[in-house]
Design a protein around this nucleic acid. Structure first.
Length: 210
DNA sequence: ATGACGATTTACT
DNA sequence: GTAAATCGTCATA
């Protein structure tokens, strides 16, 4: 019996980052490992990064480097970066080439491959006993759970086989909470803009707010 | 060549 | 609550 889930098309991603950040809530992020293992979760928390004018964005002021190159490319590709000497985080590129905006995926509600995610999350911490809500409740946590790293930077989420999105639930606007982005205090006024979105009451978000 | 800095997580007081 | 971990990246020289 074959499961034919609907992949999200290019046009889904080719929108402004705020609209995309809200639309991504409820969609399924899918990772297929080299051994065929399928890991998946519903997106429950996102942040929009508005590009050149956005002091919190890696492309602020038109910054364009090998690291952030994917943000300058076409919509529907992954931008995966390395920070703090130990963590990876995944974004979905929005809009169009030359408009370097993206949406950071901050948390998932894990749905497939939880056992493997738990292994991935505790490889360097054998003693840890994680609850389901500890598996993907943060940008670096979900990257570790899904084995995302720079080798997948720039991957095409529309046509790729190892990382992509499938149509999930539509989250009603009344169930979306907006608030300030996390970890961008250095961004001045931009730090307070309500560009973080999460599903109201969902236990898998990285932090409770509003 | 060098130095400062992270879109974070974890453990510990 | 605070602080350590840990290193690729980029701006400056």
């Amino acid at each position: 019996m074959s499961r034919e889930e609907e992949r999200l098309p290019r046009r889904f991603f080719a929108r402004d980052p705020v609209t995309l950040a809200r639309a991504l809530l409820g969609q399924a992020l899918v990772r297929v490992l080299d051994d065929g293992t399928r890991l998946a979760g519903r997106i429950v928390e996102t942040e929009a990064y508005l590009g050149v004018p956005d002091r919190a964005a890696h492309t602020f002021g038109g910054r364009r480097t090998p690291r952030n190159a994917a943000m300058w490319g076409p919509a529907g590709h992954a931008y995966i970066y390395f920070v703090y000497g130990m963590h990876h985080c995944m974004n979905v590129v929005a809009e169009r080439p030359g408009e370097p905006t993206a949406v950071l995926i901050r948390a998932l509600e894990p749905r497939e491959g939880l056992a493997r995610m738990r292994v991935n999350r505790t490889l360097k911490r054998p003693a840890a006993r994680l609850r389901d809500t500890d598996l993907c409740s943060g940008p670096a946590r979900l990257a570790q759970a899904l084995q995302l790293d720079r080798s997948l930077d720039g991957a095409d989420l529309v046509t790729g086989e190892s990382l992509f999105l499938e149509r999930g639930a539509r989250i009603a606007p009344r169930n979306i909470v907006a608030g300030p982005r996390i970890g961008v205090a250095y961004a001045g006024e931009w730090a307070e803009a309500p560009l973080r979105f999460h599903v109201a009451g969902n236990p898998h978000v990285s932090r409770q707010t509003g």
